[in-house]
């Protein structure tokens, strides 16, 4: 394994609704011997709400530049943050005029294209690698998992790091940990509905429900995911969806870093597994 140090961009949800993802990411990388240096004074990536690409580029240029000054590649656990960082890196590298203009806003936005942006899932499977992970796994997950990828992992093409229609990175990790992937290909890359949560909850709930229902009928013990907005929709909002639609789902939803942490022998409390909205106790009993 070649990486020993990375710049870490936690993203806004890490401070509240996705605290569990944040804690488990830090714990997993510590266990793997990769030092995470938090991007100093990082700012919001603009999420899905910044529709003006120029705003996205300027916001993310600052975060990229801070990591670049430390000569570290930047990694984030959020799919939207990843997409915004990666498309900014690409745009600024390809367009010198834009790059110069953005540097003109403030000298701290000077990004020269010498570092890259990556998502946690990509770093784990493709950079650290399956062999290295295998050598450190000490526990077996006796669970059936619905691997849910959502958006930006396999699309759009310019920034994708997995297959657009049938992504496999999480499937591979789950198998490596001794878990079983339930048939889930229809749902893997469907959007969770998150971007409409605050403006068209009816549509957003409908989408999240389809994903959770499918996981349930496929016999999954939990849904695994890799994005805090998906976590918000499928886990934190699950009780609201149940109430609004008058149904029972009760499907545990965990971050892939939480599962990997368990397999690496990290204590559940250090992985934030007491913070997922849907109870995870039954799952924990199946880790041997």
């Amino acid at each position: 394994m070649s990486i020993t140090k990375l710049a870490y961009y936690p993203g806004c949800p890490s401070e509240a609704t996705a605290l569990d993802q944040h804690i488990s990411t830090e714990a997993v990388f510590e266990k793997l011997g990769v030092e995470l240096v938090e991007v100093e004074d990082w700012n919001c990536c603009g999420a899905a709400e910044a529709e003006n690409p120029m705003l996205v580029y300027a916001l993310n240029a600052r975060n990229l530049a801070i990591a670049e000054r430390a000569s570290l590649n930047i990694m984030t656990p959020c799919s939207i943050c990843y997409y915004n960082l990666a498309r900014t890196a690409k745009a600024l590298k390809e367009d010198e005029k834009l790059s110069a203009e953005i540097k003109g806003i403030d000298s701290s936005l000077e990004y020269n294209g010498t570092i890259t942006a990556k998502h946690v899932l990509d770093v784990l499977v493709n950079d650290i690698g399956m062999d290295e992970l295998k050598s450190k796994i000490v526990k077996k997950l006796n669970i059936k998992v619905a691997p849910y990828y959502g958006c930006y992992i396999g699309r759009p093409r310019e920034t994708a790091y997995d297959d657009p229609d049938d992504p496999v990175l999480m499937d591979k990790l789950i198998e490596l940990m001794g878990g079983e992937n339930v048939p889930f290909s229809q749902m893997k890359t469907l959007c969770c509905g998150g971007p409409l949560m605050m403006t068209r909850a009816d549509i957003a709930f409908d989408m999240a429900r389809t994903i959770l229902d499918t996981a349930k009928s496929a016999g999954a013990d939990c849904v695994a995911l890799a994005c805090p907005l998906c976590g918000m929709m499928l886990d934190a909002k699950q009780a609201d969806i149940e109430k609004a639609l008058n149904i029972k789902i009760e499907m545990p939803v965990v971050y892939i870093t939480q599962l990997l942490g368990l397999a690496l022998g990290i204590d559940a409390s250090k992985l934030g597994l007491d913070k997922n909205a849907v109870d995870t106790k039954e799952l924990l009993g199946k880790v041997v």
């Binding site: 958006c151 699309r155 759009p156 994708a160 657009p164 890359t189 959007c191 998150g194």
Partner: peptide, 9 residues
């Protein structure tokens, strides 16, 4: 949803 499914296809 800005989900980019259309873009990808």
């Amino acid at each position: 949803l800005i989900c980019q499914t259309c873009t990808a296809r």
